[in-house]
Amino acid sequence: MEAVKEHIIIKGLGAISPLGHDSASTAAAYTSGVPAFETILHQGILTPIAALRAEAEQKLQELVEANHGYKHLDRSVLMAVYAARQAAMQAGWLQENAPVDDDLAVNIGSSRGATGLFEQYFKAFQQEKLSSSASPTTTLGNLSSWVAHAVNAGGGQISHSITCSTALMAIANGVAWLKAGMARRFLAGGTEAPLTDFTIAQMKAVGIYSRLADHPYPCQPYAAEKHNTFTLGEGAAVFALEKTHHPATGAAIVEAVGLGFEKLVSKTGISAEGINFQKSMRQALTQLPEHDRKIDLIITHTPGTRAGDTAELAAIQAVFGENAPAITTNKWLIGHTLGASGALSLQYALQVLQQQQYTSIPYPNLLSQKHPQSIKRIMVNAAGFGGNAASVVVSLV
């Protein structure tokens, strides 16, 4: 008798970003297609960024006021806690004052971790006024440990960084742990709060930051005009994962997770052919049923850089050929949120599956803009410095 197939379902989702602080506000922002960018003065130069809006900022403030211990935490940790509590609540896992759940594991990642606090404490160090809180509050482990406290999780607590693939690799860990029986429930996602002087300066130093401060679309993935338009954003998204043999109708399923690495050929770690993307996409495709490996839409990583965008499009062409799926991204709306970007793209994928529509990119670009009639399966890509890439395939039952 054929064994009953196991499914990894997304039972809950929480997110906070420049587009919104819950499902309703975020969905409305995607539907409107209005970018969430603003302009700041950074080192005397007008610079575009995507920061949380007032309502989302108020939600973070309410979180801090509800728990005295949160006021010393980095912004990245606060956003992770906020998103994780949303996800756990939606999944039905969040019970205040309940016993610790030893079967609930947590993996929250970030490319750069406690960026704001680290810079703050380094300035204090230079002035010989360093606080005893400096080390405890800037360790990467803060991410998952504080999330675990916030949702009463007593299982494995993993904080990691694999640059901009971080969030999707947290999903990969969740899938692996659940399939291995090392946890019954798993919270996985990514968070990033990189809108600091030093982090913005680092991105500018790489030579990729957008100079389109006065443009309605400062971040332009797939731009027809060849220029770099990388723009930083902030946010977090967390997913409540669970294994089941009988998913309910309409449930979101993680069908496949692929990882890819390539030999470093540049400081950003990506080849012109996008070898890392080719590997991650092919690995994900092999996990789908042999008779049904059709992808209807790819939400690409494409951060708005000439090299990165071109490499990923080349990789898609190499893997899918003439049968390449439709392609879109959300970075023209919220910029690049580094370690959280894959999670926010996955959030977008779930909305597209539910709504069966996505907003066309309004500036001149290299895509055909042909939308599929039906969107049953979406692949989400992410890649980061170091030559790594990840691809996650999701669908609805």
Rank of each mutant, 00 (worst) to 15 (best):
G44F: 06
S25L: 08
L94F: 13
A24F: 00
E322D: 12
M203L: 12
T26F: 07
N107S: 13
N365K: 07
Q58C: 01
W146G: 06
A150D: 03
G44N: 09
D102Y: 11
F125G: 02
T305W: 01
H215V: 00
N67H: 11
A148H: 04
P194W: 01
Y363P: 05
Q355M: 05
A66W: 00
F198G: 00
T310Y: 09
I10V: 14
A24T: 08
R377T: 09
V380D: 08
A251P: 03
T26K: 02
F118A: 15
V238A: 11
R185F: 04
M79Y: 04
T244P: 14
A223K: 00
F320H: 03
A315G: 13
A50L: 07
V380F: 10
D101P: 00
A36K: 11
R85M: 08
A188Y: 12
A3R: 14
P325W: 12
W177D: 15
F239V: 02
P364W: 09
A83Y: 11
F261N: 15
S210Y: 03
A66R: 04
A114G: 05
L168Q: 12
I9R: 11
T39G: 06
I45D: 13
L241S: 10
G109E: 14
K11E: 11
A256E: 07
Q317N: 13
G304R: 10
S345Q: 07
L13M: 15
A183S: 10
K11Q: 11
S111T: 07
T310H: 10
I327P: 10
E255K: 04
